[in-house]
């Protein structure tokens, strides 16, 4: 569905190759400033690509018009402070169909628990609540495409600020979307959640790919140590990888 070929962005990304197939669930991993957000932005068609290609359904992403992209790809950015006291419901409605507690899809409500937040002004929400509203906004914008199983969801650190329960419900929801045939690429700092839910991963360090492919192939002790400069213990527990940083050698 989405294909990157030798993508370079000066000082941020170097020679990235990536093939995201339809119905795959990718996580982009790496330390702060590794280039995760930049990569998601260019996949969303929001950045000029000076070198290399980014193709969506075999067409260069720059060939799509922004209004066309807006209907099939969702993009969630890291937090942005809004200067206006807009009620959450109205804010979300600007980017899609009119959203009310009645039209809010049950699946979104189950995952993000936002019905109670809808009437509240954005400035009166906590960080995690605002994050859930922003995720709802991104998903709602492409809800028709999601229903047709054609959506591409690009989420920049969707787990940031969420409590444990909402992290889980969100990942379960993403799992459902992917199972239905939608494609999801998100960035994450939670290696255990990524190992548990992602089908594939791309591990970045200083704009370069350390490893790329199936989640089990990417999450190895050697790869993680290289990307994070930290030793990890990885164990397999009931078919899910458990990834623990090795505290004793935390200062390498």
């Amino acid at each position: 569905m989405l294909e990157l070929e030798q993508v370079c962005i000066t000082q941020r990304l170097h020679n990235i190759d990536l093939k995201v197939g339809r119905g795959q669930h990718w996580h982009i991993l790496g330390e702060n400033g590794a280039g995760k957000s930049t990569l998601l932005q260019l996949m969303a068609g929001l950045l000029e690509i000076p070198h290399g290609h980014c193709r969506l359904n075999a067409h260069d992403i720059t060939d799509y018009s922004l209004p066309h992209l807006a209907r099939l790809r969702a993009y969630h950015a890291q937090q942005y402070t809004l200067p206006f006291d807009i009620p959450a419901q109205q804010y979300i409605s600007f980017y899609g169909q009119r959203l009310t507690a009645a039209t809010l899809p049950a699946a979104i409500e189950q995952a993000l628990d936002v019905a109670a937040l809808l009437p509240r002004p954005l400035t009166c929400l906590s960080g995690g609540e605002l994050q859930r509203i922003n995720l709802t906004r991104a998903i709602w914008q492409v809800w028709t495409a999601i229903a047709n199983a054609k959506a591409l969801l690009l989420l920049d650190e969707p787990l940031q600020g969420l409590d444990v329960r909402h992290q889980l419900t969100l990942m379960k929801f993403v799992e459902q979307l992917v199972a239905a045939g939608n494609t999801v690429v998100l960035s994450s700092h939670d290696l255990n959640l990524s190992a548990r839910f992602a089908s594939h991963a791309l591990l970045l360090k200083q704009g370069q790919a350390v490893a790329c492919g199936n989640i089990e192939q990417v999450c190895t002790e050697a790869n993680l140590a290289q990307a994070y400069g930290l030793a990890f213990d990885i164990s397999n527990n009931q078919n899910a990888l458990q990834i623990q940083p090795r505290w004793s050698s935390a200062t390498t």
């Binding site: 932005q41 807006a70 209907r71 950015a77 942005y80 600007f94 980017y95 991104a138």
Partner: peptide
Amino acid sequence: LNWLYGGEAMAASAGVS
């Protein structure tokens, strides 16, 4: 202009330059 409430990145993702 409604799309600009969420910042320029959101406006771009909603379909306007």
